[in-house]
Design a protein around this nucleic acid. Sequence first.
DNA 1: CCTTGAACCTGCGGGC
DNA 2: TGCCCGCAGGTTCAAG
Length: 289
Amino acid sequence: MGASESQTMPELPEVETVARGLTPHLKNRRFKQVELRRKDLRTPFPKDFVKRLEGAEILDISRRAKYLLLKLDTAETLVIHLGMSGTLVLRPKGHNALPEKHDHVLFTLDNGMGLVFNDPRRFGLMDLTGDLTTYAPFMHLGPEPLGKLFNSVTLKASLKGRNTPIKTAIMNQEVVVGVGNIYASESLFLAGISPFRPAKSLKDDEYQALVSAIQKTLKAAIKSGGSTLRDFVRSSGDSGYFQHHFKVYGREGKPCLCGAKSYILLITPLIQKKVQQGRATYYCSNCQK
DNA sequence: CCTTGAACCTGCGGGC
DNA sequence: TGCCCGCAGGTTCAAG
């Protein structure tokens, strides 16, 4: 039937879902051919990019922060960031369709399958590195939100003295990785914390509530992505995985789910939207203090 | 060091 | 219908 595809929108759960979805198709395959259809994305492709990839075997597919990592048998790792609008699309063997608009990189695997990187806004990037432990773009990344290094103690410590709004703070990849504009709003709503509070001003139990909320939100989104993946085939026209069950994001003017359950309030609280640091924040002023 | 705002780029939808 | 504006899920850099 249709092409086998990887559809993504790029916060941690989406990148994680892509990594998991690509794994059965890419693991232990080799890049037979790589074609660049332009010389750069957000950054230039590294020197000899094609030459360094062609013939290499993909040993493992993983994720760090919002980056996809393809470990190769050449002692290098292909680093891919999807930016705001990047997608990786798998094409079945024999699928000889002409490249579409914004198809920037065409990979052909040794079994004939294709992998296409499409990115209209070109905020994505691809790079190759031999040593991730000294890879400059990763040196200042904060802890993985689902790892042991992310907890109320470490979060509080990293936000000490910070007056920046807590919503902005948790989107800072040096504080914790993977949380983007959607899940920042969602997590703060779940934690009952106002996005406008200074980052340093939370009480200990609030840092704990926020850590738990971030983890719960991201885990649920990953689970949702995985269940929607359905063997990695996406019907065309589908707008994406997770649009459906956001509690606050994109719901400006709609009734808050918590408030709607209240028998005490005479009016139903509505979700509000405000711009913080140039990004839309959605929240309920009744539920979040 | 901390914080904010702008820049990068294209497409889409709403308002007039 | 067409044009203009604002907005979009990320990251980086400059300036205050």
